[in-house]
């Protein structure tokens, strides 16, 4: 029942295209500033499209130890990789046990998770609790305390509960124990949920600003988000100074822009390949938990 394309269709396509563009124009603008030559920026010659295209600003801010960008990227990468592994292991195994009817205390444990999720303890009690456990200036603060995010625990549990019972019954008859049911039956068929929680946790750790800002005070341990906020918003007063390298002038503007792009790069690169898992995440989550 195809109808002819009317005025509404054209206007609709136009509106949607504009919406799509508006979503990414700020990112593009930042990227264009970063690759422009500073002398055009100073003169106000760059309105949107880049002039004097080069990658010098990236190389300079990334390699100059004074800005800690490289340290920040390295730290964030380590925290993200370790944190994602720990999160997935803990979230999945906890969710798995909490779906087993033989475990009588599962309702109590789940209720406590939900209760402490809905009732926010607040920053200060968390700070006091974690610091008394030795998490100040300790990289594990990025990995251990938030390993189980209750929201993802609910999603994972809902997903595992949706698995057909027949799946494991045959294995139980064959005398499989709980470990082998988990590793040989559940994990292979629930890969999509594992990918989803891995991605959500990974993104959350990479993007985290408040937790490292509260606990990681040593320069060598800071994350890329902390370093970025410091150089762009000046939370601790580090600023870029104008300089000229290989005839290309670098100033505050294109160096800040380069730092911003570096801080979002891993997510933008991964995005096209993983967006279907991101989409799944909210859909599983929106089904009853």
């Amino acid at each position: 029942m195809r109808r002819r394309i009317g005025a509404f269709d054209i206007i609709n396509t136009l509106i949607l295209s504009i919406v799509g563009l508006v979503c990414i124009v700020p990112f593009l603008y930042t990227f264009f500033i970063a690759i422009s030559d500073g002398k055009f920026l100073i003169r106000g010659d760059v309105s949107f499209f880049p002039k004097g295209v080069n990658l010098q600003s990236f190389i300079y801010v990334f390699t100059n130890p004074r800005f800690d960008i490289m340290t920040g990227v390295r730290n964030s990468a380590i925290y993200t990789i370790l944190g994602t592994i720990v999160s997935v292991l803990l979230t999945y195994s906890t969710a798995y046990v909490l779906t087993r009817p033989r475990i009588k205390c599962r309702y109590l444990i789940m209720s406590l998770f939900v209760l402490t999720w809905v009732f926010d303890a607040g920053m200060i009690p968390r700070y006091i609790a974690y610091s008394s456990l030795g998490f100040i200036d300790n990289i594990w603060v990025m990995i251990i305390p938030d390993a189980i995010n209750t929201q993802y625990l609910i999603i994972t549990k809902a997903y595992l509960e949706g698995m057909p019972k027949e799946l494991e019954e045959a294995a139980i008859v064959d005398g499989a124990n709980d470990f082998s049911i988990l590793s040989k039956i559940f994990i292979p068929v629930t890969k999509p949920i594992i990918a989803t929680i891995a991605l959500f946790n990974g993104v959350a750790i990479w993007n985290q600003y408040l937790v490292p800002q509260m606990f990681l005070k040593t320069k060598e341990l800071k994350t890329i988000q902390q370093v970025l906020a410091n150089v762009t918003i000046g939370t601790e007063g580090t600023t870029f100074a104008n300089t000229i390298i290989n005839g290309i002038s670098l100033n505050q503007q294109n160096m800040k822009a380069a730092a911003i792009i570096i801080a979002m790069l891993p997510i933008v690169i991964a995005y096209p390949f993983v967006q279907k898992y991101f989409r799944n995440g909210i859909l599983i989550g929106s089904v009853k938990g």
Binding site: N207, Y209, T232, I233, A259, I260, A263, M264, F278
Partner: peptide, 14 residues
């Protein structure tokens, strides 16, 4: 999926 630090930085730049 972009961090608050990046979003606010972009805003401040623009």
């Amino acid at each position: 999926f972009i961090s608050s630090a990046v979003m606010v930085s972009i805003l401040a730049t623009m």
